[in-house]
Design a protein around this nucleic acid. Structure first.
Lengths: 329, 329
DNA sequence: CTGAAAGCGCTAACAG
DNA sequence: CTGTTAGCGCTTTCAG
């Protein structure tokens, strides 16, 4: 069993427990004792008990990450970026994934509170009750919301400039001479993300002086290949197009399936652009997509957290991340 | 700040701290006091401090999950399955992802130890030093290794019957009348997983009385679309085939890209089967793939952990999970 | 530079 | 059924 404590190390090294603690935290300790302590730590395989440290310090050196389960690589990439950033700053990342809706997220958030996270990152959760973020604020846990959040949520934010991302992707097609660029995206405009992606599409058309055609805008319920396939079918039946901008790679995957079935070549006959760069490089053919720098997101999130830990009273801050188009065809 | 303690609740409810603790854990408490306590908990928004509880109990009610970062949905699905299973049993899941090699995994494992995980799951880590698993055993943390593990690693195991998975996938093609079924997979045969997938392929050929053709077996360095593409190119140049079994969906994605480029129709001219069912439903066309039941894996892992917690002395146990073929074409 | 000592918040005996 | 009490292992003053 694991029972090696500071006390044991102290005994083995012939010093007091306090000295060992100091040595471990880089305090003033004579070279000789430090050596003896290090040796004891090594031979006894001492591993500090974080529960005790956290209890005493009232800080866990851990950041909580709450995400909603979505069979999507993006979340795990953000998670990886966050983990790296946290680690660089001397924190660990405790990730939890909510499977259910608001009630579930709420429970997970409480769990993170009960573990006394020093900060909290909430990625793309439109379900987390605003009340829960308020609770976090109340108990003094800095919170950063990434990409999506429920209305009324409190905390610093990292938002993605999806208008720019979409605009850029569509502009590229127009610049390449495509005349009829379609939009396939989720039509849940209660969400800013969805509004932005459509808005970027429209802006690109407008800047290029291309009139908007209602027929070319296809809205889906959700981001799935099936929906993408269906939308593309409808689009083709209504008269076709020569390029499609999809508001997610999953939709684009469905679009490609539909085109494959009808033997319409991509990008020769129709060019397809995805969004989020999760599976775009795996599709046939590889398609262009709008990518997020997840390491950057992680770093910024940590920066926001640390800033607020130092100074809890600050106003809520919002950082905008600019996505970049990865051109593949 | 968050400073509501048991003591505060006790005061508010006019009972002793011990009574509150008992009430919270379902011990004997009179109905009246229980009511008052619940009320106090609610109005004060009391949230227990897990660090303190864990310190006292010397158990954290948390399972650690160590995985190696791989831009792959499988890991996050296993993670989700595990989280669900853990939650059902009253545990939380603390997931950490190692990005680097053995040194990094080792550090993460120590971090999990220092947080006094009650159990540990290691998914698909061929890098985790055997010595670290020994350390876990030594400090009494039950460990379950899923899918892959470094040689000499200690712990209960969940292995995937990849021989059966591959055999079944290949047999299906043969039964459908395909004559020249190729194999594209990673050639790192120091790993059991890789050996098994090739072995399953061979077994299927043998049972069907089809002679093995060395030309049809293409080995790659790794599981990436690029490698899949390259392998398929080579295969086509060497004379082609009428079906390909890929040891991973990512390889299959590359295979499809290569076929798309040459305008070879799937499955009419060549049928493609993937493995792991991560992206197979997103590809064009959707392809068959061998799937793992991640919820089942999670449940089994938890069962192994709990079993060993109750009885640490047990022999190491191995559970084999049978994958299933998802036929899509 | 070093050691003694006081808890952090909670659980789990142990006596009422 | 209820309250008192003794720590869990660690950090951090506070005196030497």
């Amino acid at each position: 069993m694991n029972n090696v404590t500071l006390q044991d190390v102290a005994q083995a090294a012939g010093v007091s427990l306090a000295t060992v603690s100091r040595a471990l935290h880089g305090g003033y300790v004579s070279a000789e004792k430090r050596r003896r302590i290090e040796e004891a730590v090594h031979t006894l395989r001492y591993i500090p008990n974080q529960s005790a440290a956290a209890l005493k310090r009232n800080r866990s050196r851990t950041i909580g990450h709450l995400m909603h389960f979505h069979d999507n690589l993006l979340a795990s990439r953000v998670n990886a970026g966050l983990a790296r950033a946290a680690h660089e700053r001397g924190y660990s990342l405790f990730s939890v994934t909510s499977n259910g809706g608001g009630e579930d997220s709420r429970r997970m958030a409480e769990e993170l509170i009960s573990r006394r996270m020093d900060g909290m990152v909430v990625t793309s959760c439109r379900e987390l009750p605003a009340e829960t973020t308020a609770h976090l604020a109340e108990v003094g846990i800095p919170t950063v919301l990434i990409e999506r959040w429920a209305p009324g949520a409190m905390g610093d934010r990292i938002r993605i400039d999806d208008v720019a991302g979409a605009r850029c992707a569509v502009a590229q097609r127009l610049a390449a001479g495509r005349k009829r660029v379609a939009f396939i995206g989720c039509g849940d405009f209660s969400q800013e993300v969805e509004r932005q992606r459509l808005w970027g599409y429209r802006e690109a058309l407008e800047s290029a002086g291309v009139p908007e055609e209602i027929r070319l805008i296809r809205l889906t319920e959700d981001y799935t290949p099936e929906e993408g396939r269906r939308a593309m079918e409808a689009l083709l039946e209504s008269g076709g197009c020569d390029a499609v901008f999809c508001a997610s790679d999953l939709l684009a995957a469905g679009v490609l399936q539909s085109l494959y079935r009808r033997n319409i070549r991509v990008p020769d006959q129709i060019a397809v652009t995805g969004y989020d760069n999760t599976v775009s490089a795996m599709l046939s053919p590889q398609i262009s997509s709008v990518a997020l720098d997840c390491d950057e997101i992680g770093r910024q999130a940590m920066a926001l957290l640390l800033r607020r830990m130092d100074n809890p009273g600050l106003e809520e801050k919002e950082i905008t991340i600019l996505p970049t188009l990865i051109a593949r065809d």
